[in-house]
């Protein structure tokens, strides 16, 4: 009887301690952790994306991505995307140099033209490379703009097989965004985004992001989702991305992010 009482007491004490530890974390702290988990200096990976139409028609491409943090702003990056398959579009590339204070610089290189063309800067709401991902989504994944949003922790939920903090991100009045609200689910272990729902300016649920297959990246403290899907609930089109061969903060050649470099591809 004494043993039983002791076990119950221990259970209550432990439970209270765990709960108080979990509830003591704030939304801002979670978002800080999230930002830290995603913040990188440079990254290289291969990826295959599928654009799936509402009627199930599929377009598939394979690319290499190179990302390097630049000095044009607090959280600005250079991106180089190079197509590797199919063969007839191999070495087609896009280069983006982000800026804080002015429009991004973008170049497109088509091997048949044999020269890179500067292309007009994309709007935040523009679709990235024909996928369901917008330029704004892409920026947010690389670095959550914490100063532009108010975050509210509404609880914890299981997302697929992982526990996640459920947070509502509401844009501040001066924030320029296509969304009226985002609902984020941040993994309690890796602090990576496992699910996100985007509400458009009319308050309608517009897109749903799901990240799966979160694995640690060899030789680093980082983890990354190796499969991501983004479904547009208004059009029923979906983009699925399969990542592989992540290399984070292992160094990317700065000279790759230049017009002259992509013209040599």
């Amino acid at each position: 009887m004494k043993i039983k009482f002791a076990l119950i007491t221990l259970g209550v004490v432990l439970g209270t301690t765990i709960c108080s530890a979990q509830t003591s974390i704030t939304a801002d702290q979670i978002m800080d952790n999230y930002q830290s988990a995603t913040a990188i200096e440079n990254l290289h990976s291969t990826l295959a994306y599928k654009n799936i139409s509402k009627k199930g028609k599929v377009q598939e491409r394979k690319l290499e991505q190179y990302i390097l943090k630049n000095e044009n702003g607090e959280d600005t990056y250079n991106f180089l995307l190079r197509f590797v398959a199919p063969n007839d579009v191999k070495n087609t590339a896009t280069l983006t140099i982000q800026h804080d204070e002015k429009d991004d610089d973008q170049w497109l290189y088509l091997p048949v033209i044999r020269s890179a063309k500067k292309i007009s800067a994309s709007k935040k709401s523009d679709r990235f490379m024909g996928t369901e991902m917008s330029y704004e989504d892409l920026s947010n994944y690389l670095s959550e703009p914490i100063g532009d949003y108010d975050y509210e922790l509404v609880g914890q939920e299981q997302v697929l097989d992982r526990m996640a903090y459920n947070i509502i991100a509401t844009p501040k009045s001066k924030t320029k965004t296509q969304y009226s609200k985002r609902e984020l689910w941040i993994d309690t272990k890796t602090y990576l985004l496992t699910k996100c729902e985007f509400y458009n300016s009319k308050g309608k649920l517009n897109k749903r992001y799901i990240a799966k297959n979160i694995k640690p990246i060899k030789g680093t403290d980082y983890s990354r989702a190796h499969f991501v899907s983004l479904q547009n609930l208004l059009t029923n089109n979906t983009t699925e991305v399969y990542y592989d061969d992540f290399s984070i903060n292992k160094g990317v050649d700065k000279s790759m992010f230049s017009r002259s470099y992509i013209e040599t591809l």
């Binding site: 509402k54 579009v89 896009t94 091997p111 679709r127 024909g130 089109n237």
Partner: peptide, 13 residues
């Protein structure tokens, strides 16, 4: 490559 350029701005539909 020209078709791909179109795909980069068009929806799957």
């Amino acid at each position: 490559q020209y078709l791909m350029l179109h795909e980069m701005s068009a929806t799957p539909g």
